[in-house]
C-alpha cells in the first residue's frame, strides 16, 4: 500500500513532466470544442457549396448532431491517441532500466502494475470529463432547444470501454518487450472484438458494444437495459485482466 501510493505519485509526476497529461488534455479539449462547432458548421458549409440552383433541404443541425460528433471523435481519435500515448507504459521503463532500481529497492511488482493502471485510468477519466464538459457547454450555447436522451449513461459506457481498453493495453505490455508489440496486441484485440460483433448474438456480451452503441443510446433506438450485460462482462474482464497482468509481471524475467 505504501509502495502503491509512492509509485502512483511518481507516475502522476511523470505524466506531468513528460507532457503526456498536457497532450491528452489538449487533444480532448480541442475535440470538446470542435464537436458542436462541426455540427453547426457542416450543414452551413454544404449549403454555401450548393447555392447554384439545386436546392436541397438540409435538416437544421441539432444538439444530437453535436453529440454524434462527440461519440465519433472521442471513440475513434481519442482512444487511438490514448493508446499510442500509453503504449510505452512498461516497455519504456524496462528498456531503459529505470524500473530495476525501484524493484531492487523492494518495490513490489504488484504495486507497479496497479499504480500504473490507476494512473492511466485517472488520466483517461479527466480527459473524457473535460471533453464532455466542453461539448456540453458549447452544445447548450449553440443549440439551446436540444435535449438529448441517455447522455450520461452513453458517456459512462464510452468511459468504461476506455477503462477496458487500458487494461488490454496493460496486459499486452506485460506480454511483450517493446511498445510496438504492445500496440499491435491491443490493436489486434480491438479488431477481434469488432469481428466478433458481426455475429448478432455476440453483440450483447462484447465489450466493444460500449463504444459502438452510443449513438443508438442517445437516439433512443437502443434500450439502456440491453447494455447491462455488456457492462457486467466488461467489468469482470477488466478485473480478470488486471489480475492476469499482475500474475504475468510477477513472473517476468527482467
Amino acid at each position: 500500500m505504501r509502495n502503491y501510493s509512492a509509485f502512483l505519485k511518481k507516475e502522476v509526476l511523470e505524466y506531468t513532466k513528460t507532457y503526456k497529461l498536457l497532450i491528452m488534455l489538449m487533444v480532448f479539449a480541442v475535440f470538446g470544442i470542435t464537436n458542436p462547432l462541426m455540427a453547426k458548421l457542416l450543414p452551413e458549409i454544404l449549403r454555401k457549396l450548393m447555392t447554384d440552383g439545386n436546392i436541397m433541404t438540409l435538416p437544421e443541425a441539432t444538439a444530437y448532431d453535436a453529440w454524434t460528433q462527440f461519440f465519433k471523435n472521442a471513440t475513434q481519435m481519442g482512444l487511438i491517441v490514448m493508446v499510442i500515448l500509453f503504449s510505452g507504459v512498461l516497455s519504456s521503463e524496462l528498456s531503459k532500466g529505470t524500473l530495476i532500481n525501484m524493484l531492487t529497492k523492494g518495490l513490489s511488482r504488484t504495486a507497479v502494475i496497479l499504480s500504473k493502471y490507476t494512473c492511466m485510468v485517472l488520466v483517461w477519466t479527466i480527459s473524457i470529463a473535460l471533453c464532455f464538459a466542453l461539448t456540453y457547454g458549447y452544445t447548450v450555447y449553440l443549440f439551446p432547444a436540444g435535449e438529448t436522451a441517455n447522455l450520461i449513461f452513453s458517456t459512462f459506457c464510452l468511459w468504461l470501454f476506455g477503462v477496458f481498453l487500458l487494461v488490454v493495453l496493460l496486459l499486452s505490455a506485460t506480454l511483450t518487450k517493446s511498445n510496438y508489440g504492445c500496440l499491435l496486441i491491443t490493436g489486434a484485440a480491438a479488431v477481434v472484438c469488432m469481428l466478433v460483433n458481426i455475429i448478432p448474438a455476440a453483440h450483447r456480451y462484447n465489450p466493444i458494444s460500449l463504444a459502438t452503441d452510443n449513438l443508438g443510446l442517445i437516439s433512443n433506438s437502443i434500450a439502456v437495459s440491453s447494455l447491462y450485460c455488456t457492462i457486467l462482462i466488461s467489468c469482470l474482464l477488466s478485473l480478470l485482466f488486471v489480475f492476469l497482468s499482475v500474475l504475468i509481471f510477477r513472473k517476468k524475467q527482467l
Partner: peptide, 17 residues
C-alpha cells in the same frame, strides 16, 4: 467563443513545445 479557446490551446501547446 470557439475561436478564442482554440487559439489559446494551440498557442499554449505550441509555445510549450
Amino acid at each position: 467563443p470557439f475561436l478564442i479557446p482554440l487559439v489559446i490551446a494551440q498557442l499554449a501547446l505550441g509555445i510549450t513545445a
